[in-house]
Amino acid sequence: DIAKAIIDLAVYGKAQNRSYERLALFVDTIGPRLSGSKNLDTAIKYMHNALKENGLENVHLEPVKIPHWERGEESAMMVEPRCHNLAILGLGNSIATPPEGITAEILVVTSFDELHARAPEAKGKIVVYNEPYISYGETVQYRSQGAVEAAKAGAVASLIRSIASFSINSPHTGWQYYRSDVPRIPTACISVEDAEMMARMSSKGMKIVVNLKMEAKTYPDASSFNTVGEIVGSKYPEQVVLVSGHLDSWDVGQGAMDDGGGAFISWEALSLIKNLGLRPKRTLRLVLWTGEEQGGVGANQYYQLHKVNISNFDIVMESDEGTFMPTGLAFTGSDKARSIMREVMQLLQPINVTAVYENGGGTDVDYWVQDGVPGASLLDDITKYFWFHHSNGDTMTVQDPNQMNLCAAVWTVVSYVIADMEEMLPR
């Protein structure tokens, strides 16, 4: 009755709401946790102590280097045809403007294709991207590449419509990449509302002028840590089932959803197993990544350090797409492994979360998945996920304790059973 015992404890028993309560204390006390920040250092120390106090084994920190970028003060004021304060958030890795800012006319485009077609018009202007939101994966390229494409056309800055499926004038930040062969220009995201307004004005032939000020600064890479705790396996301790989420977040909101929820249900999995006095045959390893938002930076260094043991990694699991109502498990692996995962998910019939989907993994564990290690990620109802993602709205208020209980039950049953089965998943 192990699966039932886990579900009962997580959803109805003494552990119900524990991951939510732990997360609330964590994010309310520490706040957002940007890569390279003191807040992130504090968060890692906090979790290091918390995992030890929880009685996990081999609790330790693994040093890594991560980007250190700070946004500073920033503003964008539309000065023609009228004065209007634009809601902005500078994009991570952006350079600063001069202290007096950049004042330039706006060119509004809806796509890279339109920008390329109108490239002669972009010279000396601030390019505003008013790209429609299709899906995160498709639309996020405007955030990550917008500055480079605008600079190639001779623009002096870029303002990018937030990658958001809903907006209440809320800018959403994120990481953007420069190219060594293209001049660096300042870049920030703006709200959907302001992007659409400027598009309407532009389509009517109005001249729009904006003053953009950004103090953003990039420092040398900072020292940080991946945080690790384990329940050591009873029979095959060298073999590992890895469960994970990331501790770092953006510097807005509280990072409660991205990825506080994922990190804390991963911790909860080990806590529940300990509470039940269980010890799986192979080691259950919790890793709380650092520097995920800048492209899985801490996870990449973890992979480089540990890939020599790749044959002992049974499965790598990451929850980084919300901890709302769970709908199933995304899985990447061989057909044989998938058949086994389908059987494992049948254990979750009592809470009606049995589906196995394609494309399991995540930014932090894909290094392993690409090398053939089976990968899994929690799927949940992400209808509202991109309303809050990377914005000031990512707070504890969007989390739901009952939904986190269910997510924790799924995460725990899957990780425990795989860790305890006699054989590793076939590759």
């Binding site: 086994i340 059987e343 254990l347």
Partner: peptide, 24 residues
């Protein structure tokens, strides 16, 4: 049955199914 690297026989899928059902 295929043998695994450590010389033990790998379980058949039916055996794996039975093992997983044991956690219900």
């Amino acid at each position: 049955r295929p043998q695994s690297k450590n010389g033990r026989y790998r379980q058949t899928f039916e055996e794996v199914k039975r093992e997983i059902a044991g956690y219900k």
